[in-house]
């Protein structure tokens, strides 16, 4: 792995390489360069995941010509695909070094921060939504129970915007979650459930199920489950597997122009 990264930096196939390094006992993201090529010996695959591809988009915004190499788990790879679909990264300027990843049916030996899932407390199980259940179980609640349980989760929100800030595929410079007519500044909890549903709607065909948002949510809201449901619908309607490829997404098609008319009242 280290040899390959050194080679890439030396032969100029990448200008920088985003990986991890141990700093004061913490595995932190690190940007390796040719100037400090000896540092590559300290490259590690960290158990804690950071969104390296999001950092790559920041670098690309500063210098669109930069060639970036990065360590990629499956979730990073999916995010790169989506960022390419939405023209935030150019796949020709991105080189990935694939490494082992999250718990899933496909990977028997995961290597990431999702290895230990916390069991929710008794109260949350009673009135809220258990973060660890799948979409079918969540759908099995009655209509009333669903409303009450999800609203319990949403009203805990402290509007930290962590879910948006950490999300690799949230790149908009103007965000609907800050729109004054939609969400409005100053209210806590934010407009529920609008805040969460707006974000959920925007994650259709975008969320690559990396779970970083839920990891970053101080209020332990089952965001990953919510966006999973959204993308289950995307799969059913468009037969689109979000992030599996960097091909055309049904959400980035420019169709025929239509004239919108007011609905008769």
């Amino acid at each position: 792995m280290k040899k390959k990264v050194k080679k890439w930096l030396e032969d100029g196939s990448v200008d920088v390489f985003l990986g991890y390094k141990m700093v004061h006992g913490h595995p932190l993201p690190h940007c390796f360069t040719l100037e400090d090529v000896a540092e590559v010996d300290e490259l590690i695959v960290s158990e804690a995941r950071y969104s390296l591809e999001k950092i790559a988009t920041h670098l690309t915004r500063q210098d669109p010509k930069i060639k970036i190499g990065l360590l990629a788990r499956d979730c990073n790879q999916r995010a790169i695909n989506i960022l390419s679909v939405w023209h935030q990264l150019d796949l020709e300027k991105i080189k990935t070094l694939n490494v082992n990843c999250c718990p899933s049916n496909l990977k028997a030996h995961p290597d990431c921060s999702y290895m230990t899932v916390e069991t929710p407390g008794a109260y949350k199980q009673q009135v809220g939504i258990d973060n660890t259940i799948d979409t079918e179980t969540a759908d099995a609640f009655s209509k009333e129970a669903k409303t009450i349980r999800w609203m319990y989760e949403f009203q805990k929100c402290i509007k930290c915007y962590g879910c948006r800030n950490i999300c690799p595929v949230c790149f908009c410079t103007e965000c609907s979650l800050e729109h004054k007519d939609l969400i409005g500044p100053g209210n806590l909890p934010p407009q529920v459930p609008i805040f969460h549903l707006v974000r959920a709607a925007h994650m259709a065909g975008r969320c690559i199920d990396c779970g970083l948002c839920e990891d970053a949510c101080p209020m332990d809201i089952p965001l990953r489950l919510l966006y999973r449901k959204v993308n289950r619908i995307v799969k059913d309607v468009f037969d689109y597997d979000t992030g599996e490829s960097s091909e055309q997404s049904p959400f980035s098609l420019i169709g025929d122009s239509v004239k919108l008319t007011l609905k008769p009242m």
Binding site: H26, P27, A48, S113, C160, G162, A216, P218
Partner: peptide, 11 residues
């Protein structure tokens, strides 16, 4: 992410 106090969360 690995900070003992905030465990990868911020306000």
């Amino acid at each position: 992410k690995t900070h003992p106090v905030s465990q990868g969360k911020l306000c």
